[in-house]
Write a protein that binds this DNA or RNA. Structure first.
Lengths: 339, 339
DNA sequence: AAATTCTTTGCAAACGATTTCGAAAAATGT
DNA sequence: ACATTTTTCGAAATCGTTTGCAAAGAATTT
């Protein structure tokens, strides 16, 4: 079965290809009668314009790419959901690429897409990314681009993120107010600005409350078994941390696992709070206090801003650095205990 | 900055466009020397062939589409991860579409893609899909297609799934062996074959063990608050169910929430087991017994099979209906209690 | 009535890569 | 030295859609 194309329609209707094309795009220079004839036959034969021909001719692909470190993470799933809440209305398609937290993959993917396959990209950089030349080069080439969550303030590129430093401060403050005096921070390796923001919030809180114990910044990895080893060591130190602030959901899970193994009780022995978008956090044993990021909104807003750039509209100043607030939900894992 | 294309390379090298094209595709009819010259300049100028021109000419897009009901679900995230473990090696790109469990969206998306935008699709049908004509039509048009998880045995289309009926049987049996006598099944509305398989497993177990209480098939929805209402009613019935088998992870979470609200104790008052791919299930209060589906493998295998079809290779018989086994993990939520 | 605009359509040239066909040049065989 | 094959390359057609321009006819103005 060969596809029905403009030529076939034109022949059938005794019209020129150009006339058919214009009729279908509702051009003003085609009479209503012929428009109707064309539309009717197109409908009847189920004509669908070939996207590659269109893209080639118009030099636009009606496609955007979303480049994220991983997908087995509620946060990124929700972001994608937010993105997808705008793309179909715009008639756009969404390509997904995973970097698996690998800078080289990230660079290669950006390189791979620099050929017109997409009209714009949305990136959340990997934690092994220290050199931002590939992002810079993309931006310099004038192709629309936004960064979200894992952003970079150095580049003059739209950033969509949450109030990381502020919430990290609040989380640490929350632990302090619940009586913790020896709080460890569990963060990602690497030198991402998001990590730095969260770390900074943690440190600021310790400083403001004049905590005598030195800060403990623990850097964890993508591998659960390594993280559990590191955490075991952490909990066997003296003095043992009495509070854990996990900057990543996964690390809170690791901490829970290790506490269970070492028979440490949450929140009696150690209180835990974490950045997390897991609905089931409330069902944990004990229920996990969380900082919920507006993932869906981040995705939606990032997509909206990207489309503004694609459509060459001016961005409002607040759209260049957009900060959507997170929410701290207090649960049993940071409750005050009798002890 | 205008793109570098074949024409520019050809002019620079004093060669014909066709020669450059052939050189880059490593054609045998180009001398090693000119190949080297061409490659060198292409490298230097960062030449990237325009994918739309290629796709138009070759009538293939190097792109596949993944069409799923939702993405905020560990199972589907893991499937995507599995798919992505294959696609880059094949030089393929992945488009994502969400149906939000809406048959009309699903039909429209398939329609939208029937124009050469993709070389094949992978579908997990929505639960509001009763009519499979759109899938049938796609398949009849000869465009590569595989179904996964939410499949249909009626159609002669490759299916990749898990052993739903068997595991549903085992889950129910497990509850029975732990002393439950009044087990409710929480499933999805709709008439999907996956639901039917799981339901059948549940019923077979009840029958085999000659349970006197009538089966209770509860159909839940996408909305949490509705589900909680239904479950509240369920638990206020007499006799109250002493076992819950959730066919969907989300419904187990709803059940936990309602039990907490009604001060019912798991596993003393009611035992719970669920199909689930949540790593954190072990951290629930109490830890949730789960049937873990091989989501990653399902994605990987489904992608491999799709590529076999795209490459017009013959499928092995077992590849037409591939069943990857799930695993039952027993945890505290189905433990035998003193009572 | 002639000159002008306006409306509607067609022709042909793009877009950039691939591929068929053929021609020239080089290598081989007789 | 000539014929034949092989190697290497170029010209041009092609994929399907869009668009600048021309042209014909209709409508309007002078």
């Amino acid at each position: 079965m060969d596809q029905v194309n403009l030529k076939k329609l034109a022949k059938e209707l005794n019209l020129a290809v150009s006339t058919v094309s214009r009729a279908l795009r509702d051009s003003h220079e085609i009479s209503p009668q012929t428009k109707e004839r064309v539309r009717e036959l197109a409908e009847k034969l189920g004509f669908q314009p070939n996207p590659h021909a269109s893209s080639l001719r118009q030099n636009k692909s009606k496609t955007i790419a979303v480049i994220i470190p991983e997908i087995e993470n509620n946060f990124f799933s929700q972001v994608i959901n937010g993105i997808e809440s705008v793309t179909p209305n715009k008639g756009y398609h969404v390509l997904i690429y995973l970097t698996h937290e690998d800078y080289n993959k990230e660079r290669d993917i950006l390189q791979l897409l620099r050929n017109g396959r997409v009209d714009g990209i949305m990136v959340s950089v990997s934690n092994t990314t220290t050199n931002l030349d590939h992002i810079e080069a993309w931006h310099a080439a004038g192709i629309p681009l936004v960064l979200f969550d894992r952003t970079s303030e150095d580049l003059d590129v739209p950033n969509i993120m949450t109030n990381d430093a502020e919430m990290a401060f609040k989380a640490t403050e929350h632990l302090l107010k619940r009586g913790c005096r020896n709080i460890a921070y569990l963060g990602m390796t690497g030198n991402l600005s998001i990590s730095n923001r969260r770390k900074a919030g943690y440190l600021t809180a310790l400083e403001k409350y004049k905590v005598p114990a030195p800060p403990q910044i623990i850097e964890l990895t993508a591998k659960d078994y390594i993280n559990r080893d590191i955490l075991k060591q952490l909990f066997e130190q003296q003095p043992r941390p009495d509070g854990i602030f996990a900057a990543i959901e996964k690390f809170a899970v690791n901490a829970y696992e290790v506490c269970k193994e070492l028979h440490l009780h949450i929140p009696q022995d150690v209180k835990v709070i974490s950045f997390s978008n897991l609905q089931a956090a409330a069902l944990f044993d004990p229920a996990l206090s969380t900082i919920i990021q507006p993932a869906y909104d981040i995705g939606r807003e990032a997509a909206n801003i990207l489309f503004k750039i694609i459509e060459k509209k001016m961005l409002m100043p607040y759209e260049k650095k957009m900060v959507l607030p997170s929410q701290l939900i207090e649960r049993a894992s940071t409750a005050v205990t009798g002890k």
